[in-house]
């Protein structure tokens, strides 16, 4: 018994080079520069998302740096008793009880739009909120939205696609017509209408986007792949060994389409972030802070005409959207080569 276990272990080691699919994918990624670049960017954003709460708790005072409610102005700095070159000591009238009480009840205007200074590396937005803090804070929301949408999309697409391929008949007809319908469906206008009818927060949006794209084109792509897998003898062999339809779909079709599903998961992240940016640019989403919303704040505050001069209001957010989408896209493109070579192989 014991001896048997040892031999099994040692043989496993012996055949470590024998290619398990995941190992092969990893080797390909390591060899591909674009994929590494993408992973690097995603890690960078992940790092931002992780250290933001830490910074908020330690270095950054929430009164000044909170991405939604913090703002930089004379009053906030004076309240904290901090004076510097930008905010010198306040005039004497500042300390009169009438002024202070009015400040406390929030009757005083918010902060100002500052360019790059030491305590705001990327400046502040039109109401004095720190751009870097907003940028980092939004990353978490984008991750949640992108991944949640992708997981919902791909789960639906994989299950429905393989089922349509294997069961054929009316199941196939129904889901394929539904996919045609959804592909012709104008997504953004629909979401605009939906945002008027219900409160669209990130999770709601992810679910709606996931369903819209899950039953859409991805179903057709997965189905095509599953049909190719279905024609192999080992699928029939599983059936002839007594396996139920569900067994065949679960054990043979789904494992074979999973690489493709994963690929489309990456592309879905890109699409979801793009949609979110569009919707929050129109100010239709109920999110505290997001990259799209940052650009919205700029245009809504009248800085659109002088956007070159106030570049920090839109460039960091725009660049973040582009880079974040590009990272997932690049990994996807690199994986595509692996998936397609495996497809040809069998």
């Amino acid at each position: 018994m014991n001896r048997g276990r040892i031999t099994r272990k040692s043989t496993k080691k012996l055949h470590r080079t024998s290619a398990s699919p995941m190992r092969e994918v990893w080797q390909h990624i390591r060899a591909s520069k674009t994929a590494l670049f993408g992973i690097g960017i995603i890690l960078l954003f992940g790092f931002c998302a992780l250290i933001h709460p830490l910074l908020m708790h330690t270095v950054w005072h929430p009164r000044l740096y909170d991405p939604v409610t913090g703002y930089d102005s004379f009053s906030s700095w004076y309240a904290l008793g901090i004076y510097d070159a930008v905010h010198p000591a306040p005039p004497s009238w500042y300390w009169t009880p009438q002024f202070l009480s009015s400040w406390r009840t929030g009757q005083i205007s918010l902060g100002e739009c500052l360019a790059h200074i030491a305590r705001h590396p990327l400046g502040t937005d039109p109401i004095g909120r720190d751009i870097l803090s907003q940028l980092m804070y939004s990353t978490r929301a984008e991750f949640i939205l992108g991944l949640l949408t992708a997981i919902i999309t791909v789960s639906i697409g994989t299950i429905v696609g393989t089922a349509a391929a294997y069961y054929a008949g009316w199941v196939d007809t129904f889901f394929m017509r539904l996919a045609d319908l959804l592909m012709l469906f104008p997504g953004i206008p629909f979401l605009i209408v939906l945002s008027a009818m219900m409160d669209l927060n990130l999770v709601n949006l992810a679910i709606v986007l996931g369903i819209l794209s899950g039953f859409g084109s991805i179903t057709i792509i997965i189905k095509a792949q599953a049909l190719a897998v279905k024609s192999h003898a080992y699928v029939e062999a599983a059936r002839l060994a007594g396996g139920s339809r569900l067994w065949v779909v679960r054990k043979h079709l789904i494992p074979h389409v999973l690489p493709l599903s994963f690929l489309y998961m990456l592309f879905t992240v890109t699409a979801a972030i793009g949609t979110e940016a569009t919707l929050s640019f129109f100010g239709l989403l109920n999110v505290g802070c997001s990259w799209g919303l940052m650009i919205h704040t700029m245009s809504a505050s009248g800085y659109l005409a002088s956007s070159i001069r106030y570049w920090w209001l839109w460039l960091p957010a725009g660049l973040a959207i582009t880079l974040f989408c590009a990272a997932f896209y690049l990994i996807g493109r690199s994986l595509e080569q692996v998936v397609h070579s495996q497809r040809q192989e069998g």
């Binding site: 699919p21 192999h232 003898a233 080992y234 062999a237 599983a238 002839l240 060994a241 007594g242 396996g243 067994w247 054990k251 043979h252 494992p255 074979h256 192989e345 069998g346």
Partner: peptide, 27 residues
């Protein structure tokens, strides 16, 4: 049971030999 003509097509390329042979037992 049926033994297929094409041994290159009759075994799932994503499963190890052990998994291929054990499949009928699992079913």
């Amino acid at each position: 049971q049926l033994i297929y003509q094409d041994p290159y097509d009759a075994l799932d390329p994503r499963r190890t030999v052990q998994a291929c042979v054990a499949e009928p037992l699992e079913i």
